[in-house]
Design a protein around this nucleic acid. Sequence first.
RNA 1: GCAGGGGUACCCGAGUUGGUCAAAGGGGCCGGACUUAAGCUCCGGUGCUUAGUGCUUCAUGGGUUCGAAUCCCAUCCCCUGCACCA
Length: 938
Amino acid sequence: MPYDAQEIESRWQNKWSEDRVFDAEIDDSKPKFYCLEMFPYPSGHMHMGHVRNYSIGDAMARFQRLMGKNVLYPMGYDSFGMPAENAAKKEGGHPHDVTHCNISSIRSDQERMGYSYDWRRFLATSDVDYYRWNQEMFLMLNERGLIERKSAPVNWCIDCDTVLANEQVRNNRCWRCGLEVVQRDMAQWFVRMTEYSDELLDELENISFPENVKAMQRNWIGRSNGAHIDFQVVDSSSVIGAFTTRPDTIFGVTFLTLSPEHPLCEELCSGSEWEEGWRALKEECSRMSEFERVNMLKEKKGVFLGRHAINPLNNERVPIYAGNFVVSTYGTGAVMAVPGHDQRDFDFATEYDLEIRRVLEEKRDGGINEPMNRAFEGYGPMVNSPVNGFDGLSGDEAKNAVISALEEKQAGHGKVEYRLKDWLLSRQRFWGTPIPMIHCKTCGIVPVPREDLPVELPLEVVFTEDQSGNPLESHHSFVQTICPKCGSEARRETDTMDTFYDSSWYFMRFCDANNDESPFDRSAVDYWMDGGVDLYIGGIEHAVMHLLYARFFTKFTRDAGMNKVGEPFGRLVCQGMLNAPAPYCSDCNSEYHVDYFESACPTCGKELSSRSAKMSKSLGNTVSPEEMISRFGADTVRLFILFGANPEAGMDWSDSALEANHRQINSLFDAIDEAMALSDAPNQNKWIEAMSDVSLREGVMISHFEMLSDWNWYLRRGGQDRTTAMKFLEGWIPMLAPATPHIAEEFWNMFGGKDLLAALEIPILSIESDDLHNLAEEEYVKNIISSARNLRNLAERHSKKPISRVVIQTSPIWKSDLASEAIKLHLSEFDFKANGQEHVKSLEIFNEESIRGEVFRTWNSIAVGGKKTRGKIYTWSDRSRYLLSEGIDELSIISANSDFIASALGVEDVEAYRVGEGEDVGEKARISFPLEPGIAFL
RNA sequence: GCAGGGGUACCCGAGUUGGUCAAAGGGGCCGGACUUAAGCUCCGGUGCUUAGUGCUUCAUGGGUUCGAAUCCCAUCCCCUGCACCA
């Protein structure tokens, strides 16, 4: 029967959908499994990265259904965002239409792959049914004091009169008009996520994210313990507060550095000869985007502000500088500079000829007064302290001593600082959730009352290319409103929410996606989210932001009494990159568009080679899923994706490997087909283990490759018993379903399985003792053939005439006895190292003087091993041990299979006898060993 | 610069609680079977050597060990993320 992927796949997809087999309902009688993929931004068609993501998820969802779990597996779209807005401007449409058109196209691509989503739970964040709950929860955040309005800098293009996102800024210039971008402060909305800093950090200990993701989150939160120290400005009432993680270096402070934006700068140098220098530096910094400020800065620059401050512990006067490397957003925007023990300060001090002082001892007798040629940033005992009671203290002890001294003088205190900033929620864009706030001249800022929600995005907006700013601002009927407090005319907030907000709770909405009274019902979320989403699959690019926002949100809703769980995700799997070959120049170390294949490097003219690179539009090395599906079918694409590499590993696209996987499916088809015509127990345990661990590649290797070759071996060995075959198929076919559900369903149908395989709980087959015996014998035959094959090549070279027969001498009984003896001893944890020699000497066989040496050698190779190899006792497989300990006669296995062995080796005749019971052909008796008979070709 | 992950045969990729590892599996390539023939399919081979042995291999160089792809140190290179964090 020919394999027609297109026909089979659409037939079963329709059937699954008709029978609603993937609809999930709460069912307390079964363990639940919530399988989730990071939902996509609907940018037209599905790409290969999506295919990989969802093929992994679907295989796991289907596998867990087979294992009897109640599986929730939903799909939705993160459909707010700039691309739709840009597309609308370009085409003069509305983002709403663009978005919906894209959603239906990507959804049909997903359906064509046969993913087993519960489509009743479909959601799109740009639908008012969804974003109204964003607004509802914004009000809740506000009521809980977690919303704040403060000013923050944005990228601003003066010409376009608009805010630019980071990605709209190229080389610090506007992407549209090319004008240099400036930083401009604006009042914006923030979510006070930092309230949860400690919990977000500490809970990382208890969740099973990959270590690298945890590390990234830890760094991102960046908790550091230190001290806040106040430095009084000389001849002024002003105080400079500085945060330091190294209060133990307080006596090494030789200057202070402020960020150029620090409010004190102007006050300090205003009207002095130093003002101009500071203004120039500040101007220079403001021209840089935040990205540039930290990336492009090659040279540390600073200016003296003309004033000094007092070190509170030694009352020393130190100069105050402004430095371009100090950022205003971390700590207080002021740094106490300790050039002796901080390399950046050291560099700065060297540049501006400032004092460098050692206040910590680097190594014992290290010369505490010698000049330093670099900063010592480690910990060591304090030295050279001008105040008594500090020298000799080190590490935390030293820090604490300094902190207490500061507290005593009321000049500072211990402080914990975080790198994590509050979440800037405002976006000056149209295509996002409107922030439900109203600006009233009399009442100030007033939240939209709950009963007035949702604040809907207007649909009657025309988007054009040359439009600048946020279209909401110029939409009068949207902006004009009435103050809910005083009833006078007021203005609606036109900022919309960051789209990360939308994705911060969608996994809870999926639990109760059609609820029109609240974001979600608590009981539904408590059921599905118990222990978190059981498997969450997505890209590493969301390791920090999305995953942190979602964790924060879950904690906030928990504290608001909406759900029990505090951590949203149980197991997280970050899929690896999908690569494809791209032209590459090793000299220039750069990749080029695929159009350059077979031509010279456009930069240096050298011949281009090829290397694999992340699939991207700019390199043109993408592969269209649609095309592959139409050529080979979804099952082949899925199999290729899952077999190509494990989920976390990077993976290279290969047309020939894809074709090979298609051949594999053809083979499966033929095999099953043949089995149906007639008609070893499948290795379910290993498979279940691999799949449960999301080791999909290993799982697929077992289900789609090893099982097939086992089957082929069965056929080669003349298997044609229908009962055996049916039993084998009953175990095997369900194993094919996670990766290639369509052919599996087809086979199941041919097999005569009741109900749909998609809804089946897998029958677990037991291994009977006969099986073990048969399998052990089969393994023995395989091994004999395999080692004989190797020898055959050698034998051919040594033999003058063509080879026609083989003589096999199985090991003498005494050797087999030694083997089974050793196996028994090994089971009882006998200490071969200590007592092995004595033991062999006590055996009866040892009394045979003529073979004493051979007995000894045999024992050694069984129990001890050689220089690089361990004894056989450790290396025999379970099946080999079985054969040996049961005293199975090798000779009879060989005799029973002599025709098969003869044909496999391409000889006419196989003769076998035990060593000593026939001629010692080729002197093979000597090397004959249990399970490794001497083999001679003639 | 910091953090995390890597470098395995022609290619991709397992293996990293040290011994069953000349190293799974796939691709490619070579040979054979089937076939009128090609494709498909099946079987075998694929570091060198050798009547089953020995040698050299898992980025490079050292080390630990009876024994290292696996553990330790150093170096080089690649990828990802963060970024002058006080």
